[in-house]
Design a protein around this nucleic acid. Structure first.
Lengths: 199, 199, 199, 199
DNA sequence: GATGAATGAGCTTTCATTCAT
DNA sequence: AATGAATGAAAGCTCATTCAT
């Protein structure tokens, strides 16, 4: 088996840091914690990421690219907006269950620690891959006459806030059921909120 | 003018800590920062709150009580669920504009720093005042036949996630308009999602 | 005996840091070294000086003030420039023997670690007390016709470089005799170099 | 063009290290900095110099040899001591302007970081080439009756301290004129201080 | 000779908390 | 109640040096 190259090591660090940051919090996870979790020395970790902040920013970009890619696949399918909503909710919840650290990172690290992401992630540029796909979904639905032509942010906030809120409740263990249980209800709620009056 | 009594001092500390925690973050705000901002010594601050964590927990309870009280007033009014939704959104956004630190604290301190609130705020007991009023609103709407009888958490997540998401976008300065601009759209979206099929 | 007040503690820290910096070097002396040498905790030391650099700057200002004051006394005496030169050399060498750390600090810490003093000690403002007195000595000597009216820096460099060089050699243990042995020679050399042609 | 041999590589390393140490300081220049500045790997640099300290010591020996050689040429000329002084000052200042790193290294690295040169450069053995030439100049001047027969160190300190002091002031940008401007004044001052009484 | 990833001790600095006054 | 000096563990980060390739 080949020795892991530089890119693989970077990925391994990001993977572990993602897990620890999302589980333990950004400030309560130390660089030694991360290094130890991958059996690497502290000094060497700094050969891959120049600072803790930079590591955090690379991670959110990675997550955004990952989720954006999932959404892009859905956007490219030739199905109705209603079905797309259902698929998006499903993908989001599946991710939350299979890779909970990704969604948790988004909610608890990225959204919460503004000071860390202030420089280098202004506006939403570190999550633009993801935001862009939501935008595409929405605008195509409007163009097709399936969705009401409302303010984009009103629609975007609904999507992101709602899904994020559910995953948060899930993480808090206050939901009596697992996430898939809620997929139909939530997809329907979102569709009712966004659909054009004609439907 | 009377010397402030113990309760007033506690309130002053909580008020300043709330501002600082929400603006600067929990970990980036130090106890000396808080003490200095109210012209009090660190040692004395510890006479009122035994630890930074305890202070943080008292604050979230205070916010929950405050918002819960606002919602209770709406719940007690004799108006339709649709109107109540509009009022709730309005109150939430008004708070976000007038006392942004409250909503920011909820989103950025309470939701994000699980480790701080783990002990003492299990489940949602530190925000129960607020959650309870949402529950009352929802159940009464269902009982009156105005809202669809769906899973409570599906409805709660919609409310909280949506409103929180919008305020987050507002705080990020990515919204092209001020919050009141979105009230009608959002209230309508929520209503469409929650209303019973008969309507 | 009274408990040392804040100013006394600051002085004690500066005193010890001065000794250690001059003896061991700025970079090879650590903050824990300094703290330990005065039986103080690291954290508390930072209550008195916000950073290692700031501490270093305060020390050079203190030395400059001390030496400037010694020179001022000589300048105020009603004696010839030749006698003043002799007294200045004597004071400088006495200081180098009694408080060697002061002169060593000047030579080895202040002059050598430009990067540390760059901000806040631009030009010679952190040693102006001292430089000013040399300037006064020189200009008065010229006015009295005892010294040649040459470029100030040519004269200043002679004084400072010469004395500094001797103390450096002394510190290196390459001088076969103690410093006082050289006072007459050096004073004479300086006088010969600076005196007006009439004398 | 031939591949650079071992000696040429060593020279290249010393050249770059000299520049960096004198400009940025010994402790603030890292081995990777040096390696990068010559497009060489850190590991390979260690094939040429076993440690940072050893590199520093080789450099001072090189500088001493270079300056000593310049002085030797002057010593070999058949001119008066007065003229020799003028030439020495000229050479020193020319070096300070053309290769400022050499004189800066002497003043800021060698003289200041005793701990680095303690082992291996005891006394003045790492700068003996240079010191020896000054000694020869002085003793020949005395023998010829041109210079006063005073203590060697009193004379040496004058030379070295004075010239070093001027170059230091030059490096601090406090001199209103460039170095050549001061050559005559300073040469004259030194001559006045050293000349025999008969002249 | 050449590479540069890897090590890990050690640096400066911070900060929740305590406690003598 | 009130003060703020004092503590000390622990953080993020650096860097001379080594060594497998």
């Amino acid at each position: 088996m080949a020795r892991p190259n530089k890119e693989e090591k970077k990925a391994a660090i990001m993977h572990q840091a993602l897990k620890l940051f999302s589980k333990e919090g950004f400030y309560t996870t130390t660089i030694p914690d991360i290094a130890k979790s991958i059996g690497m020395s502290v000094g060497n970790l700094y050969n891959y990421f120049k600072s803790k902040d930079i590591l955090a920013k690379e991670i959110i970009k990675y997550i955004s690219a990952y989720l954006g890619n999932e959404l892009r696949k859905i956007n490219e399918e030739d199905i109705s907006s209603r079905e797309k909503i259902h698929k998006i909710v499903t993908v989001y919840f599946r991710t939350a269950e299979e890779k909970p650290e990704m969604i948790e990172y988004f909610l608890r690290v990225y959204l919460a620690n503004r000071e860390v992401f202030k420089e280098g992630c202004e506006g939403m540029i570190c999550v633009s891959d993801f935001v862009t796909e939501i935008m595409i979904f929405f605008e195509e639905g409007v163009k097709k006459g399936e969705l009401r032509d409302q303010d984009f942010f009103s629609a975007f906030g609904l999507f992101m806030g709602y899904l994020g809120g559910m995953v948060f409740l899930y993480g808090e263990h206050v939901l009596p059921e697992a996430l898939p249980y809620y997929i139909d209800d939530i997809s329907n709620n979102i569709y009712q909120a966004l659909k054009s009056d004609e439907n």
